[in-house]
């Protein structure tokens, strides 16, 4: 059963990532692109977690955690830059 569910899961998330890519390229505004990137890193974590299940490797947890940390900080930095024109005041 897992052998069927895993490829479907991969497919769903890859499709989601492609839709994010579409929004990233299309824009039309900067906040839209930032939001697309934000969604993209969240979906990437889902992909990595799934990959961890597929390859039975526990190390992928660390990669997911790191992406979560870096993704959040960069979204906040970009959002702050867009409101204030500066990241550190």
């Amino acid at each position: 059963m897992l052998a069927i569910a895993l490829p479907i899961g991969f497919g769903l998330i890859v499709l989601a990532l492609l839709l994010n890519l579409y929004r990233l390229l299309r824009g039309p505004t900067l906040p839209d692109r930032a939001l697309a990137l934000d969604t993209m890193y969240i979906n990437a974590i889902a992909l990595i977690v799934l990959y961890g299940i597929a390859t039975d490797g526990k190390l992928y947890f660390e990669a997911g955690m790191l992406i979560a940390l870096i993704g959040f900080v960069s979204t906040v930095a970009v959002a702050k830059y867009m409101t204030r024109g500066d990241i550190i005041e």
Partner: peptide
Amino acid sequence: GVFALVGSIGL
């Protein structure tokens, strides 16, 4: 997977 996709469809 379905919810991740739905969120991205919304986006």
